[in-house]
């Protein structure tokens, strides 16, 4: 295998055929091996892209199973809904109050200590 062929075959998986320098393009135009290699990757990419149009039917109970799980979950589990927000606000308020109380206790304890000389 010629050095130019090695370079083309190393680059082909990432880039297809539109990446080559003028020198490598000149090589490819006369090298059937490299032309075939670039064509293979082009075909592979077209085949993979064609899969986007192919759907596999979901199993029948899927929508029913989702509906069952959702029906049994409380609305509070939803992000941003009323009860969830209330819960978060309550938790945040509690944390602030607890932190303030902690600071007050420490300040009180320090002020009640006898001064060290």
């Amino acid at each position: 295998m010629r050095p130019a062929c090695r370079v083309v075959q190393a680059l082909a998986p990432s880039q297809g055929g539109g990446f080559l320098s003028v020198r490598l393009n000149a090589h490819v135009s006369t090298c059937l091996t490299c032309q075939a290699e670039i064509a293979r990757y082009g075909k592979l990419r077209r085949q993979l892209a064609a899969l986007a149009d192919v759907m596999v039917a979901a199993p029948e109970p899927l929508s029913a199973a989702v509906a069952t799980v959702i029906a049994s979950s409380p609305d509070g589990l939803r992000m941003g809904t009323g009860s969830g927000q209330v819960g978060r606000i309550a938790a945040a308020t509690g944390a602030v109050v607890a932190a303030a109380a902690g600071v007050a206790v420490v300040a009180l304890w320090r002020s009640s200590r006898p001064a060290v000389r």
């Binding site: 596999v56 039917a57 979901a58 929508s63």
Partner: peptide, 11 residues
């Protein structure tokens, strides 16, 4: 919405 999108999500 689940019924509309279930095949594409499953695929």
């Amino acid at each position: 919405l689940v019924r509309i999108h279930q095949d594409e999500v499953y695929t």
